[in-house]
Structures are given as structure tokens and as C-alpha cells.
Amino acid sequence: MSSLAQTQPALAAASLPKATAEPAWVKWTLVTVALTFLTLFLVLPLSVVLYGAFELGVKVWWDAITEPDALAAIRLTLFVLVIVVPLNAIFGIAIAWAIAKFEFKGKTLLISIIDMPFAISPVVVGLIFVILFGSQGWLGPWLSAHDIKIVFAVPGIIIVILFGTLPFVARELIPLMQQQGKEEEEASLTLGASGWKTFWYVTLPNIKWGLIYGVVLCNARAMGEFGAVAIVSGRIRGETNTMPLHIEVLYNEYMFTAAFAVSSLLTGLALVTIVIKSWVEYKDERRHKTA
């Protein structure tokens, strides 16, 4: 009996793959197609950026990114990130909370509206805000009467990037919070915890990884946003040029090395983002395995 039990699984294991697996050539064709595609459209362009940036040596690269206009662009981009990312995180948590834990009229509408920024072309987004806040726009006369500048200034940039990255955190958190339900929060409340303590000790730890993931994605998109920013910023050098805009200016002026140098910086930031994202995914997966 015991020898039977031992030999049977071995037999099954040997005969199983034939029944379920595709032929080897299918597998290798697919792998080759995927790898070729990745090389052509990801690895190659990335290498070109790095090659272009460092072609004339590290000194030229360093000069290109420490040039005043480049520094201003980097500073502006980071400044925008510092404002946009926390605001989006807060908004994302708020809307995910509302959708996952409350019942109200218009909930389905809200869920579909939240994806709008992804669907609308960035150029259109830029135009919307120019029409709203521009000097010829609806709110233009009132704004100029109160000496508030939004379009062709930093507030405009922040607004369009905020709009464009709005869904990232919320989309990440809504399914997560819906799946978790509200029992743990209710348990916390019955144990005497206030609403704030419940959020801090129960809700936030439960959504931590989803939140970080959403923030990382939001961050990546906010750095690279081009179309909408190009329209509302007015492209004032050293003032309203973010990094992507600055790269375009350099490129249009045939300063390829400088353009590549700033590009390499942006690419570097993107790579860091991807590493963080993978790490978060890895941690999250491990947490699910133990759970």
C-alpha cells in the first residue's frame, strides 16, 4: 500500500505536462516576441537617453543640469510634487473611504467620474483651465481684479497636474477598502476608540501598501506631465518651465546633449519610482501570503 502511494504521484507528474502544456515552440515564440518588443521600445530608447546624456563626458552632463534654467526647472518640478502628491493622497483616501464605507446617492456616478482625468487628453485639460482662469476666461476678470495669477504661473501648473493625477490613489484604494469592508473599524469603535484613532490604528495600516503604491504612481505621472502643463504654464524660462518642458525647449534649440542630460535625470527618477513600486508590490505579496 505504501509503495503504491509513493509511485502513483510520480507517474502522474510525468504524464501531466503532456496533457496540459502547450508545445515548446509556442512558448519560445511568445518569449522571443516579448523580449524583442521590450528591447526595441524600452531598453534601446533608455540606453539612447543615457548615451546621449554622457556622450561628451560627465562634466558636460553636470554643467547641463546645474545651469540656472535647468535648476529652476528641477526645483519647480519638485515643488509641484511636494504639493500635488500629498493633496492627492488625502483626496484619494477621502473618496475611497466615502465610496467603500458609506451608501449615498450618486455613488456609481462618482466612481465613473473619477476616471475622467485619464480619459481626457492632457491638451484639453490645459485648455479647460485656460478657459476657466485665463485673462479672457470666465473667472479671468475677477482674478485679475484681485491680482491673482493662475494661468501662466505656478498655481496653474499645480492645478492641471493635480487634475491629471487625481485618480491614482483613489483607484488603488477603492477596491482595497471595499474588499476589507468595515468590520474592523466597527470592532475598533465598539472597543471605545474614537473615529480618529480608528482611522489611525486600524484603517491606515490596512491600506498602507495600496496607498504607497498609489502615491508612487501619482508621483511618476506628476513628474512627467507635459501636455496640460505646456498649455497653462506659458513656458517662461526659469519660472514656469517644469523638467519635461525644459527638455523640449533645449531640444528645440538643438542643445541635444543638455536635453538628454535633463532627460536622464527624469529617467533616473522614473527608474527609482519603478524600484520602489516593485518593492511595494513584493512586500504586499508577502503580506498576502502570510495572511
Partner: peptide, 17 residues
């Protein structure tokens, strides 16, 4: 609810994971 001083036990435990 947080002031009623009741102990509540849920069907699916609702332990803090």
C-alpha cells in the same frame, strides 16, 4: 457606539490583521 461600553463579537471575527 464608542461610549456605550458594549463588547461586540462579529461573525467573521474582525480581528485587526
Amino acid at each position: 457606539v464608542s461610549e456605550r461600553g458594549v463588547g461586540f463579537v462579529f461573525q467573521h471575527y474582525a480581528l485587526f490583521k
